[in-house]
Design a protein around this nucleic acid. Structure first.
Length: 225
DNA sequence: TCATTAAACGCGT
DNA sequence: ACGCGTTTAATGA
């Protein structure tokens, strides 16, 4: 169940960095499926020999702590590709991945991924850029975690989901419950609601019935600095 | 005592 | 059925 090269180009920014022959090869290694809201793509400890792309929708990455408390680590938005670590190192999946709403998911099989990884400079350019972007984001997260109040945490986590390098198809509306924002930002549901109202008053975002619309991503990104 | 939280409840979509 | 606001009871600063 492969996919046409033209279609691949619409769902994967990295495909634009490949030669036509490489892109064709990649398209042959792609499969797609729909995951319902609340459905799991994989659980911690699964072996999953493929690289995953989000065509549409929203995922969260979480695990269960040693004492049984579920911990959310990160959100993943449309246009994002992830999981290269487990494919390259042939590891087991480190986290649970759940769909926060119905999501369309593409998979590039491991053999094709490794072939591109070994031979395509364009593909490697993309991977390095993506890793670099993520690293920068995570460093920023650690640096600011010590300084920001809960509103800053909420603002940053929302801005992260709209990172144009990591999630180029995300748009500016996020269909996510306030409870899930709270889990992402490690802030209680009540506090999340207060923070969202505050950010709305400042005009950085709009709270919608089914999520939020971001009006000023830069302001959210740098809130509290 | 005051603030914050999780859990329970109820309302509106 | 779900998300959100509110209430309540517990926790801790």
């Amino acid at each position: 169940m492969a996919v046409s090269t033209d279609y691949l180009l619409t769902i994967a920014t990295w495909a634009h960095e490949l030669t036509p022959a490489e892109a064709e090869q990649a398209a042959r290694g792609i499969t797609e499926k729909t995951v319902p809201k609340g459905g799991y793509l994989c659980h911690r400890g699964d072996r999953m020999d493929s690289w995953t792309g989000i065509v549409s929708g929203l995922l969260k990455l979480s695990a269960v702590s040693s004492l049984g408390k579920p911990v959310t680590f990160s959100g993943l938005a449309a246009g994002g590709w992830f999981g290269e670590g487990t494919v390259i190192k042939d590891e087991l999946r480190q986290y649970d991945i759940m769909a926060l709403r119905e999501s369309r998911i593409a998979s590039l099989n491991g053999a094709t991924f490794r072939r591109l990884f070994e031979t395509s400079t364009g593909f490697n350019r993309f991977l390095v850029r993506q890793l670099n972007e993520r690293l920068g984001q995570f460093i920023g997260m650690v640096a600011h975690q010590r300084m920001l109040d809960s509103t800053g945490q909420v603002a940053r986590n929302i801005a992260w989901l709209l990172n144009p390098v990591l999630f180029p198809a995300a748009g500016n509306k996020i269909e996510i419950s306030q409870e899930e924002i709270g889990l992402l930002a490690a802030v209680s549901r009540q506090a999340t609601n207060r923070c969202l109202k505050l950010l709305e008053e400042k005009g950085y975002l709009k709270v919608l019935p089914d999520g939020i619309r971001v009006l000023d991503r830069e302001a959210l990104m740098h809130y509290g600095e």
